[in-house]
């Protein structure tokens, strides 16, 4: 198996006062192939965001190792771009400038023309030419998240990490963005990890779905292969036996095997 991104025995333990500790996640073993899209799904509090932050390097893991192309991850870096749940655009910069600030920093060797060309390429990739000079406060939530995706992809990351990227959006906008993401992926292959709590989103977008048990001391419960051809059509999928099988497998995991009472 091609070990592109590899998590080996990863755990996150928080020290509480008085010698006590809280185990958020433990025993995480996961191999992710290049250009694979993997969803991580689980109830809230299962440590899935913690897991993503550890891969991003924003949170340090307390044991085990995370390796990207055989190099151990130690702190954040642009080869692991993050699309944050709340988009995290800088409100004092325009759409164009929000992407430019990333490209400029990561690809400092570009000439002025090349820089502009690259920024515009990613502005166009998410169909935001018309809004490139607008400030984040002037555009819709879906558009902001598109800028977030463009900013993340513009720095040519090895892995794209998405932390509930569409969680804050209404369902129509969410579907629209999922289509966007699939189209982009169709043109340029990326390795993507998506944190989600939406079963349909997980099946629609992923090659594999990683299901997490409940916290504390959460870990990987099952991994599901989604054997659906691409491009995928969300309407046609509704009656596809493989789609239905995958959905049921996740439903079964989340609501039978690891149901959460207090939700």
């Amino acid at each position: 198996m091609n070990k592109f991104l590899s998590l080996e025995g990863v755990a996150k333990v928080f020290a509480l006062g008085g010698g006590k500790e809280y185990v958020a996640v433990q025993n995480i073993d996961l191999q992710i192939r290049e250009n694979e899209i993997v969803s991580i799904i689980g109830h809230s509090g299962c440590g899935k965001s913690t897991l993503l932050n550890m891969i991003a390097g924003l949170d340090a893991h307390t044991s085990g190792g995370i390796y990207l192309t055989n190099k151990e991850i130690d702190g954040p870096g642009p080869e692991r771009a993050v699309v944050f749940q709340n988009h995290s655009l800088l409100p004092w910069l325009t759409v164009y400038q929000n992407i430019e600030i990333a490209v400029k920093k990561v690809m400092g060797e570009l000439s002025k023309e090349e820089l502009k060309e690259r920024v515009m390429k990613f502005v166009q990739m998410v169909n935001l030419d018309h809004a490139k000079d607008k400030y984040p406060g002037e555009i819709s939530g879906g558009m902001k998240q598109r800028v977030g995706i463009a900013r993340a992809l513009s720095i040519k990351p090895k892995v794209l990490l998405m932390d509930e990227p569409f969680g804050a959006l209404d369902s129509l906008t969410r579907a629209n963005l999922q289509e966007h993401l699939m189209r982009i992926q169709q043109n340029v292959k990326n390795t993507v990890i998506i944190i989600t709590h939406d079963i349909d989103e997980a099946v629609l977008l992923s090659d594999r779905v990683v299901m997490m048990t409940n916290g504390p001391a959460a870990t990987i419960g099952e991994i599901l292969e989604v054997k659906l051809e691409r491009p995928r059509d969300r309407v046609a999928l509704q009656s596809d036996p493989e789609y239905i099988r995958c959905r049921e497998a996740i439903l079964d995991f989340l609501y039978k095997k690891f149901a959460k009472e207090d939700e």
Binding site: P76, G77, K105
Partner: peptide, 12 residues
């Protein structure tokens, strides 16, 4: 913290 995370990922 979100803005600071952006800075961390970009290694400012």
């Amino acid at each position: 913290q979100d803005y600071l995370n952006v800075a961390r990922v970009l290694r400012f």
